[in-house]
């Protein structure tokens, strides 16, 4: 009898995560959807005119900015992250690996406000000095995000590379390939789905990052035309305006959050499908 009750309770607890996820979905959609329907989906998604106190709710500039910083961080972060993953998984002596892997993972533990702060203090002046523009820019945000998503991509890629059966590598080496040829021609292609999953999860992290981006991106509300333009992402807009918003303005921020939520869930589901295929 007691065992039965305990099992029931545990079953209930086990649904807590999915329950919270459903609750989040319900609340974000309940708050955000009405204003989208009111403004019209077309005007909401494909207009860049955002003046929520005057009834204009176009979030196009923010969507483009969010995608741009995410793309920028992927372009810069992925090669670096893969270089780290290959080095650690293939070239690194095991003794050094037990030290280096947690060191790279520690990078994920540095708070995003610290990244943003160092970006403002050190990176932004360099960009302003040598490349021009205000310094606070799409480029600055992409560089900071590239560093922030690196540990995610590296550590999942290491797992993917290590999961490739040793036979593949031994086969390649036995046929006279060098270690690097074995990595490039055999191991990486075999680890592809894991590496792609890692990149997708890195993208999800980049598009959702807020505080670091607010601090270095400049937050000007327009569609960026150059890497040196300041940008304002979906996340920055929500964080910057939530404090003083009310009424339709506040629900419009929830609507922006809803779009962000949809992006993230799509990426998560994609990553899940890829993992399963493997």
């Amino acid at each position: 009898m007691k065992e039965k009750i305990i099992e029931k309770i545990l079953t209930l607890l086990a649904f807590s995560a999915i329950g919270v996820l459903l609750l989040i979905t319900v609340f974000i959609f309940k708050e955000g959807l009405p204003v989208i329907l009111k403004a019209g989906i077309k005007d909401f998604l494909f207009s860049a005119k955002w003046a929520p106190t005057k009834g204009h709710f176009g979030i196009l500039a923010m969507i483009i900015s969010s995608l741009a910083v995410t793309f920028g961080s992927i372009v810069m972060g992925v090669p670096l992250a893969l270089a780290c993953a290959v080095t650690l998984a293939e070239f690194c002596p095991p003794r050094l690996l037990v030290f280096l892997k947690p060191t790279i993972e520690l990078l994920a533990g540095i708070p995003s406000v610290v990244f943003g702060f160092l970006g403002v203090i050190l990176l932004v002046p360099i960009i302003r000095e040598y490349l021009g523009g205000p310094g606070l820019s799409l480029l600055a945000a992409s560089i900071i995000l590239a560093i922030m998503i690196l540990p995610t991509i590296t550590s999942i890629s290491i797992d993917a590379i290590q999961a490739v059966p040793l036979l593949y590598k031994e086969g390649a080496l036995a046929m006279g390939a060098t270690h690097w040829q074995a990595i490039w021609l055999v191991i990486l292609p075999a680890a592809r789905s894991g590496v792609v999953t890692a990149i997708i999860l890195g993208m999800a992290r980049a598009i959702g990052e807020t505080m670091a981006v607010i601090m270095v991106a400049g937050n000007a509300l327009k569609i960026p035309s150059s890497l040196l333009d300041p940008v304002r992402t979906l996340t920055s807009t929500i964080a910057l305006e939530m404090g003083y918003s009310a009424g339709d303005h506040r629900t419009a921020l929830f609507a922006a959050g809803m779009i962000l939520f949809i992006f993230i869930m799509a990426l998560t589901i994609l990553a899940n499908l890829l993992m399963r295929k493997k």
Binding site: A14, F15, A17, I18, G19, V20, L21, L23, I24, F27, I28, K30, E31, L201, A204, R205, I207, G208, E209, T210, T235, I238, A239, M242, L253, F254, G257, L260, F261, I264, M265, L267, T268, I269, N272
Partner: peptide
């Protein structure tokens, strides 16, 4: 359950903030 857990892990802090606020 695993899907719920993984998805929840991917939800960015700002979305959780909106949710908690609401």
């Amino acid at each position: 359950i695993r899907f719920g857990t993984e998805s929840l892990a991917g939800i960015p802090s700002i979305i959780l903030g909106l949710f908690g606020f609401a």
